[in-house]
Simulated scan of single mutants.
Amino acid sequence: MLNVISLYTGVGGLDYGFKAAGFHTSAAVELDAACCRNLRANRSGPVLEEDIHLVSSDAILSAANLRAGEADVLIGGPPCQPFSKSGYWARGDAMRLDDPRADTLTAYLRVLRDVQPRAFLLENVPGLAFKGKDEGLERVLAGLREINETTGTAYKPYWKVVNAADYGTPQMRERLVIVAARDGSPFAFPKAKFGEGLKAYRTTWDALGDLPEQPNEPGLQMTGKWADLLPTIPEGQNYLWHTDRGGGQPLFGWRRRYWNFLLKLAKDRPAWTIQAQPGSATGPFHWRNRKLSMRELCRLQTFPDDVSLIGSRGDIQRMVGNAVPSLLAEVMAWEIRVQLLAAGRRPRAYKLLPTARGRAPAPEAVRPLPAKFRPLIGTHEAHPGNGRGYGALGRAA
């Protein structure tokens, strides 16, 4: 098997995809204790439960039983929260790779410089490449130029914002993916296989249709002020159903709430992005008006079925919500194998692609509006526009 060194491994979304494509994770680095417990429970190989800034590249290579230049691929998704340090980059005060103040991107680049894998994959939030806010992407490009100049490598990066649903994941989830080979070989991102004009998207029914609709798992009942309102919203809708532009009662102003408020899955469509830290009314929720079970969350992220997560409900939601869909990782891993490592042919079918189950059952019936919500019926102003909502006005005051 080809080998992988994994940074910012999380609960293993990237690693499971690369494993499906014939790679073995020789060493993983992850700080979060809950993620590390689950990594050890679900896969083999050393897990370094340490802060990436405090673990040396030599220690990572030693754990992987590799020397510099022997790793096939370096993978990882540096957390996006530390990008508030973008002021360093915007002012031209770029941190060197060994700077003790290093952010997560710079730490990834430091390991890349020292490990010198044959190829690397770095994934992140799409916003990293937004025009005018792309200091993070520019930091990566500048770091690669520095690495090439000091080590004689020829990493030439290729990047693209991809939607996991376009490759068969039953979830709309966009990620920025950056790929490069040590010898400068070109890389072409795979074309979309699913979507308009192509094969039909894999749906939540494809992913969940064989699972029990009432799982034996505690903590799935929706709680809070709005729990009894969710059953009055049709599949595939959110709180906008109960506005003057929806089909229900005018309980809210148009676009006055966040998109995921009372958002419900539809059987015949992909899921919306799974959230890592949802509030009590933050979806997507199951069409049976409850929270998603551990297995359902894993299915929507296309984790292998032999992965079973342990921990609190909040831990599992956070770990899965922060993960990369494993099918997307499998697709990218095969492209790296074929294009950059000359190791095999693309499979006829990906291992983690959900089975198409045919036409989904009819949507669940909606329930009448409970009497306790009727006092909310009335005229509600629509959102007045960007920068003029309640939150923005409150911050301005």
Rank of each mutant, 00 (worst) to 15 (best):
G136F: 03
E135Q: 15
A342G: 12
W272Q: 12
K372Y: 00
G10C: 12
V331W: 00
I147G: 09
F194L: 02
N148D: 15
V140F: 02
A142F: 08
A181C: 03
G389S: 02
A21E: 02
L251N: 07
A90E: 02
V29R: 02
A365H: 11
A154E: 10
W254C: 11
Y350P: 08
F120C: 02
D183Y: 00
A207P: 13
L112S: 02
K133L: 06
R374D: 09
F285D: 04
V161Y: 01
H380M: 12
D166V: 10
I274L: 15
W259H: 09
Q214W: 04
L141F: 04
H242Y: 06
P304C: 00
G77H: 01
D134M: 06
N65C: 14
R313M: 07
R388W: 14
L341V: 10
R257K: 15
A188C: 09
A41C: 03
T25S: 09
K264Q: 13
R101F: 10
N65Q: 15
E196T: 13
P79D: 05
E330N: 01
R295M: 06
P363T: 14
Y8M: 07
G127C: 03
A181H: 02
N3F: 07
G253N: 00
V47K: 04
P370D: 04
Y258E: 13
Q249M: 09
N38L: 11
P375L: 10
C35M: 00
T273E: 04
I377V: 15
G219V: 10
P78R: 10
D210T: 15
